[in-house]
């Protein structure tokens, strides 16, 4: 299948290894990955902070870039949730009939990375090898907005060599929340303290998730405290094989 990658602005800039891992997994599975060059950002930060007007052109740009895609993969559940929850309403507000139609046709073809594997491609085992103790953080948008359910866990369980340990209070937010982390830094820090405690209590050496935004937040505290626990995007675990790490 020809799969278009929407890398997202922050993965492009800060976490290119996640993008490389997505490409590696999908090509290993025999698919062709394309990368529309004009893509930038889905508009989530602006929309969720109250800058709806600024998010509108970003919706138009996204649709123009991906309109003709067969399937779109996005290694970020919060960006996918942004599109699924808000794009139809935003398109209505812009009021262009062609845009409203394009959004309606495009949305069902957009998948968060783990969702693409489990729901669109029907896979649990993608042939990965990762001999480490790992815990999975279910990001809020993946859990509640996309209803990813046990999809990501099924993918992880099929990884050879992995020692997967459950985290306490898996449904609890890590406290990132986009601009919340700086606008309400103190409360965000308090929430993060609970999450890092839960991560440390698992004894895992790595915490994984479908969202680098949560992971950047969790990793920020794990590193500040020199805990010796790292974070890694799910795609990077799945890209790892006995022959080589992503």
């Amino acid at each position: 299948m020809r799969i278009s990658l929407f890398i997202t602005c922050y993965n492009d800039t800060l976490f290119p290894d996640t993008g490389k891992a997505v490409v590696r997994v999908l090509e290993r599975l025999g698919h062709t990955v394309v990368f529309p060059a004009g893509q930038t950002c889905c508009g989530q930060m602006h929309y969720n902070t109250g800058y709806q007007k600024e998010a509108m052109p970003l919706l138009e740009r996204f649709v123009a870039q991906f309109r003709d895609a067969d399937a779109v993969v996005v290694p970020s559940s919060s960006c996918v949730a942004m599109m699924k929850d808000h794009y139809p309403k935003m398109a209505e507000e812009i009021g262009r009939p062609d845009l409203i139609r394009d959004v309606a046709e495009l949305l069902p073809k957009i998948f968060e990375f783990s969702e693409l594997l489990t729901r669109r491609l029907g896979l649990d085992d993608v042939g990965a090898y990762y001999p480490h103790r790992v815990t999975y953080h279910a990001s809020c948008h993946g859990l509640r907005n996309l209803n990813l359910g046990d999809g990501p866990l099924r993918l992880l369980k099929a990884v050879r060599g992995i020692d997967l340990v459950p985290i306490a209070n898996v449904e609890q937010c890590c406290g990132f929340g986009g601009t919340f982390a700086v606008k309400n830094a103190e409360v965000s820090s308090a929430m993060l303290a609970e999450k890092t405690t839960a991560v440390l209590n698992t004894g895992a050496e790595a915490c994984t998730a479908c969202d680098n935004s949560c992971l950047m937040h969790i990793q920020g505290a794990l590193h500040r405290q020199r805990t010796g626990v790292r974070t890694i995007h799910l795609a990077e675990i799945l890209a790892s094989t006995e022959e080589g790490r992503a």
């Binding site: 937010c173 929340g177 601009t179 919340f180 309400n184 965000s188």
Partner: peptide, 8 residues
């Protein structure tokens, strides 16, 4: 703004 929009 007193919310991380976690949806709980």
């Amino acid at each position: 703004y007193a919310s991380s929009l976690c949806g709980a």
